[in-house]
Simulated scan of single mutants.
Amino acid sequence: MAAGWMVSIGNIERGQLRHVTYVVAVAKVTEAIKASLDVGAARFSSGAGIGGVAFSELSLQQLDDLGMVKGGIYSLWDDTIAPCQVIAFPNQT
């Protein structure tokens, strides 16, 4: 059983394909996708259309390595903020 998911969302913005990637520390893929779409919707422009969603299962060890907490969602990539740069928000304790 998965401990979490990496979810990538492709969206069309002003005629260009853009994408964001999140790590979500929930066991069910449907919850991870919904959470990612909810968070991603805030950064998509009103005219953006979702082009697709891809996901990969993550183990508890992988989440621990990222400093994730159960139920957390963290941005790993957003190509409109810093192209070619990984953005990570580690667990704040």
Score class of each variant (00 low, 15 high):
1 M>K: 08
5 W>R: 11
89 F>K: 05
31 E>F: 01
4 G>S: 13
83 P>I: 11
40 G>R: 01
38 D>Q: 10
51 G>Y: 08
1 M>Q: 11
4 G>A: 09
66 L>T: 02
60 L>T: 01
5 W>F: 08
54 A>T: 14
49 G>P: 00
19 H>E: 13
1 M>R: 12
3 A>N: 10
64 D>L: 07
86 V>C: 04
21 T>K: 12
34 K>A: 15
86 V>H: 03
40 G>H: 02
77 W>I: 01
1 M>L: 10
23 V>F: 14
43 R>T: 11
36 S>H: 09
38 D>M: 14
45 S>H: 03
76 L>V: 13
88 A>Q: 06
58 L>M: 15
61 Q>R: 14
2 A>Y: 07
27 A>K: 13
47 G>W: 12
55 F>R: 03
93 T>P: 13
71 G>V: 01
81 I>Q: 12
63 L>K: 05
88 A>W: 11
56 S>I: 02
62 Q>C: 01
74 Y>G: 07
27 A>P: 06
54 A>Q: 10
82 A>I: 07
27 A>M: 04
47 G>I: 11
93 T>L: 07
57 E>W: 04
32 A>T: 05
41 A>C: 03
63 L>R: 06
10 G>V: 10
62 Q>P: 01
16 Q>R: 14
45 S>K: 12
33 I>Y: 03
34 K>E: 11
50 I>F: 06
14 R>N: 13
56 S>M: 11
10 G>W: 10
86 V>A: 06
74 Y>M: 07
57 E>Q: 14
70 K>E: 14
14 R>E: 04
75 S>P: 01
44 F>W: 13
11 N>P: 00
44 F>I: 02
16 Q>P: 00
31 E>A: 12
12 I>S: 09
22 Y>C: 04
70 K>Y: 08
29 V>M: 14
6 M>T: 09
51 G>P: 00
72 G>D: 14
88 A>R: 03
65 D>Q: 11
17 L>G: 02
54 A>H: 09
14 R>Q: 07
72 G>A: 12
39 V>T: 09
11 N>E: 03
13 E>D: 15
75 S>C: 13
70 K>N: 04
61 Q>L: 15
24 V>A: 09
10 G>D: 10
70 K>I: 05
50 I>S: 05
38 D>R: 08
84 C>V: 04
69 V>T: 10
90 P>M: 02
89 F>D: 10
50 I>A: 03
81 I>G: 00
51 G>E: 08
70 K>G: 01
80 T>L: 14
30 T>D: 13
65 D>H: 01
26 V>W: 09
44 F>M: 15
65 D>P: 02
42 A>C: 02
33 I>E: 10
17 L>N: 08
2 A>C: 07
38 D>A: 14
14 R>A: 07
39 V>E: 14
10 G>F: 15
73 I>R: 08
64 D>F: 00
